[in-house]
Design a protein around this nucleic acid. Sequence first.
RNA 1: GCGUUCGUAGCUCAGCUGGAUAGAGCGACGGACUUCGAAUCCGUAGGCCGCAGGUUCGAGUCCUGCCGGACGCACCA
Length: 591
Amino acid sequence: MEHYIDAWKHALASELNSLAESKGCAGLIFSDQEIIAERPPKPELGDIGFPLFVYSKKLRMAPRQIALELSERNAAGTFAPSPKDWPGEMVATGPYLNIFLDRASAVRNLLEFAQRVEWGSSDAFNGQKIMVEFSCPNTNKPLHLGHLRNNVLGESLSRIMKAAGAKVKKVNLINDRGVHICKSMLAYLAYGEGHTPADEGLKSDHFVGKYYVLFNKLKEEDPKAEEKAQTLLQKWEAGDPEVMALWKKMNDWAVNGILATYARQRVSFDEFHFEHETYKLGKKEVLDGLERGVFYRGEDGAIWIDLEELGLGKKVLLRKDGTSIYITQDIGTAIMRHETWPFDELVYVVASEQQYHFKVLFEVLKRLGYSWAERLYHLSYGLVNLPSGRMKTREGTVVDADDLIDELSELAAKEIAEKGRADAVGNLDSVSEEIALGALHYFLLQVSPIKDMLYNPEQSLSFTGDTGPYIQYMGARASSIIRKHEAGEGNASLGSISPSLFKGNADWTLARMLLELSTTIEQAAKNKDPSLLAGYAHALSSEFSAWYRDNPVLNNEDPNVSASRLEMVRVVKKSLRIVSELLCVPFLEAM
RNA sequence: GCGUUCGUAGCUCAGCUGGAUAGAGCGACGGACUUCGAAUCCGUAGGCCGCAGGUUCGAGUCCUGCCGGACGCACCA
């Protein structure tokens, strides 16, 4: 679609310039870029709309009058702006100039473009190196619903950026040190009796999480528990062999369990960074900044930055004793990352509660003189709640990631059995798991990232409505039609494909939507917002559903119609598959 | 208290850089299976876009104030 829009913007700009000249507005020139194009609110109004208000003042003409004159000139052939490869018709509608594209030509383009390898991608980011940091779990407990949103946002965004032409590197910083880890260790020492996850039949990260919760019990029994955790941390930092051995053991359990959840959720990373390796980074930069006068030493001996003028207050960057804090590490990690892989942009997918932290971090890096600090971006996302209420660690209402996927998968399996589809789907376990992931991921991505949201498990699994399974179902239906053809049903193989057969409104609505695929991907990438693509996925599915109801593909007398429609089904399937993958919704041939 | 952010149909959410009569899904009500999968589809009802000002030819969208919710305001991460 972008071809059409660009070509018509150009056409309109030159027509406006010609109009300006004839009106004696010397030197008045409109560039392609300043032309505003939009999609008319109703299909009857056209395919591309140009509101003319903005040119009105410069031309000293009413918008309606501009529209009229332009369309008259066009009709009279005085000016022939219809772009050769992207033909259409110009119609004045009040203060708007609307374009009706030539349908047969556009469908011909669609069928041809969809054959190319670059279908469903764009070059908007033109090889830019984009690093995306997401997930960043603590190794003292398993992942929960909030992580699932983070993971799918990061994974989906990475895929979208890649489809938009970027080189993407997905990174994960594992928070494997700190006092919270020591608490799990302390509780394990108190109650663990040397057990392993296998002994207790628990997934290894759940095993570690169990002891983290048990620390609360320890606190009640031992008033000095908190103090002991601090002591343990000091021993850890000193490299005490016994402490290190225990840490290593428990940490491996936690990390391995978390990796299993990633594999199950089908998210992956190109690089892992570990906080136990990075936590000392940044100290040098802070000291360096102190020398250069970017920071100052407070009366208390700690190193500070003053951001009062930005309304961000004052912030400690390095403790009095020279040890690092969270932000020190993030400063060092960002610099290390840029040195090893000079990115054009670094996106941090982190919950909105850390907005302040990132504002400070970006400002610090900017003041240290790193020009790339301008290209750091905090993709801030809201909390996920459940209809039953808020998730609170203390009240034990946190929804565990593994448990949730289990539950969804079981519900899907039950549904398949009830509908009598068990034989048709083949592998029941894997298909129900894929429906579960489709339901979960789509629901989480459907909402704009910044907003807090309500996750409704039952609704997400519905096969009707704006859901993942609905999109999977339409993909399966398209696949089913193609399968039937391959099995010899219908007469499509006797006919030939003819774009001019797609004349109806339903044909055109579907075709035009397909033409918008790469534009939508581009937009989602630019806005860093997968929900735009989710909306597209639903609209396309719904449009396809209405179309194939009224337009029999295989059961048709005319073989040319059958062949042509079958080709359209192929394009739909291909496009749905692409969109599904970008949204981390598994594509299913049958369900 | 200060800062950030959100407030659109009964519920959950769209609404691209300001543009034409504000859209979906769920739920409600009413319809459609001898024809490519009814896990679907079609139709109807349902809105002072939190409130009040302002900017503009034009505001759900931008600015200000107020009201309401969320989050943040550690030498934790």
